[in-house]
Write a protein that binds this DNA or RNA. Structure first.
Lengths: 231, 231
DNA sequence: CGCCCACTTGACGATCATCAAGAGTGGTGG
DNA sequence: CCACCACTCTTGATGATCGTCAAGTGGGCG
């Protein structure tokens, strides 16, 4: 029930203007640093603040009663987390790397939106973009094979973390652990590991380190991801 | 990339006030009737109108290049479809039953929002609720077994179509075909059919007709759906 | 240096998709 | 009114994918 930007490329392209909520009245101008693994809030917590990621990566997830966990999204610098409609957060939010976070009082944000149409429009744009991203992700993950999911995920990461080097090989430093990836993609940790080995053996990627992925041929990766090319 | 209400109970409870966009300037006061199977728009179409479902059920889906189809949501009376951020629809929308639809010019809707904060707030509320519903659905479908998905889906339908009869047995008339259900739940048609037979044989439901489901014990169905009870 | 934790690899089984055929349903026309 | 046809739904058999359990391997940090 919160709003945040997820790792996905095309629909989020129009959101580069989303950063800069800091000038809003009542907003902390300073940011706060967190160690990796810190919870920003738990499912059920009072949703008094919207969080803006300044640096680092945040993992937003829901844990089921039987222990199954679903990562709904990762949030990257510039993303907002926790703009929920109700009183309480419906998901937990935890940093996966050291992060700097700006906390924006939700009440002040909504008051600004009521007073200034351009703020309201910006929030609505953000929400509809979020929706598009989630819908896209839905299509992606509900029908794709394990390999297609992982290929899609790497393309997302390239969009969000990439150094702009689009041709030839791209080096990705994975900020999250296998468990987070697996829970994001709806797979088991073992399957993620296995698929990575398969992709390495087939020459699509290289794994000089468990947290470093070298994409040898990004076009081949796009083929593996399927149906990402139709935009 | 459009906004609509999906079949889900808890987060959408606060949205009963969503109907009544008809009084907006520029909005057609009249509705238009469509036969079952009519496309409201196709993926890639210009998103000039937001559609409000007055009666009937609408299926919103995306088709992949290789034919795999993912139903993102079903829209029920009172739901909005197609409030997208960009210029074009990202999904196709098709009636699954005879329907009456009100078409609202998107430009007029956004202009109203800019002029009247309460309209903007309503739209934002709608969008964030939509987000919550999709996130919830995400958690639900990415980790659940076939039977859990179908049980969850029936509970959604009871919420949206139910006659308020919550105790004992409930009779559902399924407005969509097996293929739509399967594509919504990420299953094959055959699996849906098989699971229905299993649930019938175990006494949870009865199937007097292929499109009529009698839920014998809704609490047992809730047990089958899992992890819906934690709210 | 050694422990701990994440990651990898292997073996096996369960779930579900696919292919194929048969049964039920609705609609149309003779 | 019945018969035919097209379509949906059901059921069966088989296999592939992926999860689970279990045992290793390797890197990071004290």
């Amino acid at each position: 029930m919160y709003i945040h930007q997820v790792a996905y490329s095309k629909p989020s392209a129009s959101q580069t203007a989303v950063t800069g909520w800091a000038e809003l009245p009542g907003c902390q101008q300073s940011t706060q640093g967190y160690a990796a693994g810190t919870y920003l809030f738990y499912e059920g917590d009072d949703a008094a603040f919207v969080h803006e990621v300044v640096t680092g990566i945040v993992c937003n997830f829901r844990t089921m009663s039987d222990g199954r966990r679903q990562v709904v999204s990762f949030s990257y610098p510039g993303d907002l987390i926790g703009l929920v409609q109700g009183e309480r957060h419906r998901f937990s939010s935890q940093t996966v790397s050291p992060a700097r976070i700006r906390r924006i009082p939700k009440g002040a944000l909504l008051k600004s939106a009521a007073a200034r149409p351009e703020i309201a429009e910006r929030l609505l744009d953000f929400a509809t973009s979020e929706l598009a991203i989630l819908q896209e992700r839905f299509v992606t993950l509900n029908r794709k094979s394990a390999q297609e999911r992982i290929a899609t995920f790497f393309l997302e990461l390239v969009e969000r973390l990439g150094d702009g080097n689009k041709g030839g090989s791209v080096t990705l430093t994975l900020p999250m652990r296998r468990r987070d990836m697996a829970d994001y993609l709806g797979l088991s940790v073992e399957t993620v590991s296995r698929i990575l080995t398969v992709m390495k053996n087939s020459g699509v990627i290289d794994l000089p380190h468990s947290s470093v992925v070298v994409i040898r041929d990004i076009f081949e990766l796009e083929d593996l991801a399927e149906c990402e090319d139709e935009f």
